[in-house]
Simulated scan of single mutants.
Amino acid sequence: MSEYEWPAGPDVPAAETVRQCWAATVTALPVGACIAGEVVGRQRFGVFIRIHGVPDAVGLAEVGGMPHDMELPAVGAEVTGKVVWHADHNCQVKIKLDEWDRFE
């Protein structure tokens, strides 16, 4: 998989599965919840995260929350963060990574 492709693979839920499980995901991951997960995809706008313990969720940490002097975590990196918003239109859990908070 190229660094900038949409996340895919055996450990990444299909888009339809994410949509079908969205209500349960929002309940399991309320705003303010702490998460841990693995980066499963990178885009210029942020990283996609496979959230541990919530198999049908996809998190997104966008570059807008990242300090300017940092780089996006690599695919495969283990990350932690906090849920800051739910994007109902595309069923994404918006995440702010803990490592980004240290530079505010």
Rank of each mutant, 00 (worst) to 15 (best):
M1C: 07
M1R: 12
S2F: 02
E3P: 05
E5P: 00
W6H: 11
G9H: 05
P10A: 13
D11E: 11
V12Q: 03
V12F: 05
V12D: 07
A14L: 07
A15S: 11
E16M: 07
E16Y: 00
E16C: 05
T17C: 01
V18M: 06
V18T: 15
V18A: 06
R19M: 01
W22A: 08
W22N: 12
A23M: 09
A23T: 13
A24Q: 08
A24T: 10
A24E: 11
T25H: 03
T25V: 15
T25R: 02
V26L: 01
L29C: 00
L29N: 01
V31I: 15
A33R: 04
I35P: 04
A36R: 13
A36N: 15
G37D: 02
E38D: 14
E38S: 12
E38V: 12
V39E: 02
V39G: 03
V39M: 09
V40S: 04
V40F: 12
R42D: 00
Q43V: 03
Q43M: 03
R44K: 09
F45E: 07
F45G: 06
G46P: 00
F48T: 15
F48V: 14
I49E: 06
I49V: 15
I49C: 11
I49L: 12
R50I: 06
R50K: 15
R50M: 03
I51D: 05
I51R: 08
I51A: 07
I51L: 04
G53R: 13
V54W: 00
V54D: 01
P55K: 12
D56V: 11
D56W: 13
V58T: 11
L60Q: 05
L60H: 12
A61Q: 03
E62S: 09
E62G: 06
V63A: 10
V63W: 03
V63N: 11
V63G: 10
V63E: 07
V63Y: 07
G64T: 09
G65A: 11
G65W: 01
M66E: 08
M66H: 07
M66S: 10
P67V: 13
H68W: 04
M70H: 10
E71G: 13
L72S: 04
L72Y: 04
A74T: 08
A74W: 05
V75W: 13
V75L: 05
A77D: 15
A77Y: 14
E78N: 14
E78I: 15
T80F: 02
T80G: 14
G81N: 14
G81C: 05
G81Q: 08
G81E: 13
K82P: 04
V83L: 00
V83H: 02
V83Y: 02
V84Y: 00
V84R: 02
W85Q: 12
W85K: 12
W85A: 07
W85V: 05
W85C: 02
H86E: 07
H86R: 10
H86L: 02
H86M: 03
A87S: 13
H89G: 08
H89K: 09
N90V: 02
N90Y: 02
C91V: 12
C91G: 03
V93Q: 01
K94L: 00
K94M: 00
I95A: 02
I95Q: 00
I95S: 00
K96M: 11
L97F: 09
D98A: 12
E99I: 15
W100P: 03
W100D: 09
D101Y: 04
F103M: 10
F103D: 13
F103S: 11
E104D: 12
